[in-house]
Computed example of a mutant assay.
Amino acid sequence: MIDSILQAPDLKLAADSNQVLNYKRDRFNYITQLFGPQLPAIQNGFFNIHMTKGIIVQPHWHTNVTEMIVVISGEVITSVFNPFTQRLMSYRLKPGQVSIFPKGWFHWIITESDHAYVLAIFDQPTPDIVFGSDFLRCIPKEVIGRAYCVNEQEYANAVAPIKESLILGPPPGCCQREEGGVITQV
């Protein structure tokens, strides 16, 4: 079968993956993307993820794609929950190393170096994403209390700061980290 996109007279086989900003936490922590709308001939899609130490790509899962992480620079820890074995699988990755997040598996990435650049490649041109932050903030406290015997008010207080989808976290000013005896806000 011949792809009609490849036969188009205005066929474009190159694009700038830095042009479309997907998410920006601050000037050092942001995500750009390249998907079908920017390059119709692409059969997959990807995010350029730039992060600094301690930043996390929030826990999430994809309903329709498998994701491959390629570390370009820096060092990260990728973690994925295996629903079949009920085990957490974590990998410390350096430049050139790769990990996979199978479709539907809960996963996240934590930056371990001052600056990291990660390429997240999907096996479809557009990923569906379910963010853990949305899942946590939208479950009624009464459901959590009944399902897990968790104190409803404590749960409500714990998730109260989550006001929107979080992609790169923690939110600015949210938590403190101690390094070398000095406490700083992230």
Rank of each mutant, 00 (worst) to 15 (best):
E154A: 04
I55N: 02
S79P: 08
V20C: 06
P95W: 11
A15V: 06
F106I: 08
F122I: 00
V70D: 07
D128N: 12
T66L: 04
L34H: 03
Q33C: 08
M51V: 14
V80H: 00
A41S: 06
L119A: 13
Q185L: 13
L34D: 00
Q43M: 09
V118Q: 06
P40V: 01
G36I: 14
E152M: 11
M51E: 01
N44W: 06
V20I: 15
V143Y: 07
R92Q: 10
F81S: 02
P171H: 05
G45N: 09
S90P: 10
I129W: 04
F46N: 00
R87N: 13
L13P: 00
P161W: 01
S113N: 14
Q43A: 08
P83K: 02
N82L: 09
E142M: 05
A158T: 09
R25H: 10
Q19A: 12
V182H: 07
V65H: 03
V118H: 03
L13T: 15
N151I: 08
L39D: 07
H115F: 07
D114S: 11
I69H: 08
I5P: 01
T66P: 01
Q153N: 13
Q86E: 11
W61F: 14
R25Y: 05
S73V: 11
L93T: 03
N82P: 01
R137Y: 10
Q153V: 14
Q176T: 10
A120R: 10
V150W: 00
A41P: 00
F101A: 04
T32Q: 04
L93W: 00
Y117K: 11
F84I: 10
M68N: 11
P140Q: 12
H62L: 03
A156F: 06
E164G: 01
I5W: 00
T85E: 08
F101P: 00
L13Y: 06
Q153M: 03
G180R: 15
T184G: 04
L88D: 11
D123T: 11
I110L: 14
G54F: 00
Q86I: 07
V71K: 03
D123N: 15
T66V: 09
G104Y: 05
R92P: 00
Y30F: 12
S133C: 08
F106R: 01
G104C: 02
G145P: 06
K103C: 10
T85L: 09
